[in-house]
Amino acid sequence: MSTTSEATPRTTRTRREVVRAYVALTKPRIIEQLLVTTVPAMLLAQRGIPSPLLVLATLVGGTLAAGSAGALNCVVDADIDAVMKRTSARPLVKHQVPTRNALVFGVVLGLISFGFLLLTTNLLAAVMAVGAILFYVFVYTMLLKRRTSQNIVWGGIAGCMPVVIGWAAVTNNVGWPAFVMFGVIFFWTPPHSWALAMKFKDDYVNAGVPMLPAVATATQVSFRIVLYSWAMVLCSLLLVPATGWLYAGLAAVLGAWFLIASHRLHNVVRRGERSDPMKLFHLSNSYLCAVFVALAVDSALSLPVTGWPF
């Protein structure tokens, strides 16, 4: 009797560990970021609040697609993850999930995401979700990541797709504001990723991954961070004709906040003083979230600056 009661909890714990390992393969933190940008894009496309069921369906389908890309990335990058301290606890490195199972898991998630989005949204959104998966795995992970210091610049395109998918789910087309939102995330990705890579530069050097901070001087990296930060902020202001005064004001203030921080990092690095790039990394997360929350609130309140048709 006692043997049975002791064995049951052990089995339960094991199952939980397996579930956690598969969830970890999907990279939940990245998924959270993608979802934060998807909903505001849908609100802007609707010029108000779209159907809650459509929003839920798009988020579920997007989560499945992002999870697929994350799992397949873990399969391809298992050798790199084992070398880098930051990723050394991932499921495939710890042998918590067999490589074959992770591969099947990733492919199945991708197929389900396509079918689910096709049934609940439209063909355009479903196709773009699959395109984002394929781009992330084959173009970024397999082609660019180990070959060029511009890997994250172009590889970041996959992370820009949720706003376009969200827009397409509402309108069944891709309007110019969707491309502007795409641009905001495109220009946001390098400062965000390079700030993190500056902190973990040795990881990338040891893994042989030519992330910019691993192959360029800190001054060169911080200068490029400033350039991309300006491009990001200016791109965010291009949305003003399609939004309202609330978004315009907050985007300007938040942009100034980020630019001050990026210039401060560059000045500290240029003077050869000790810098903390992780401050900018964490700020980049807050900035993106705040800008898109401002966009969501503005869109829900429907406060247009002009009567331009879009």
Rank of each mutant, 00 (worst) to 15 (best):
E17D: 08
E17W: 05
E17S: 14
V19D: 02
T26I: 08
I31R: 11
L34P: 05
L34R: 05
L34Y: 07
T38K: 05
T38L: 14
G48Q: 09
G48K: 10
I49A: 08
I49H: 04
I49C: 06
S51L: 07
L64R: 04
G70H: 08
V75H: 07
A78R: 13
A78Q: 13
D79E: 15
V83G: 07
M84T: 14
R90W: 10
R90T: 13
L92N: 08
K94S: 14
Q96V: 07
V97T: 08
I112N: 11
S113Y: 13
G115M: 12
L119V: 15
I133G: 07
I133H: 01
L134V: 14
L134K: 00
F135T: 07
Y136A: 06
F138M: 09
M142W: 05
K145N: 07
T148H: 06
S149E: 14
I152A: 01
C160S: 12
C160E: 13
M161C: 05
G166F: 07
V174Q: 03
G175V: 07
W176L: 08
M181Y: 11
F186Q: 04
F186V: 01
H192W: 14
H192A: 09
A197M: 12
A207E: 05
A207N: 03
P210E: 00
P210K: 01
P213L: 14
P213A: 14
T219Q: 15
L227G: 05
L237H: 11
A248E: 05
G249R: 00
V269N: 02
D276Q: 13
M278L: 15
F281C: 04
F281H: 03
S286N: 08
F292A: 08
L295N: 06
L295I: 11
V297F: 12
D298Y: 11
A300N: 09
P304N: 01
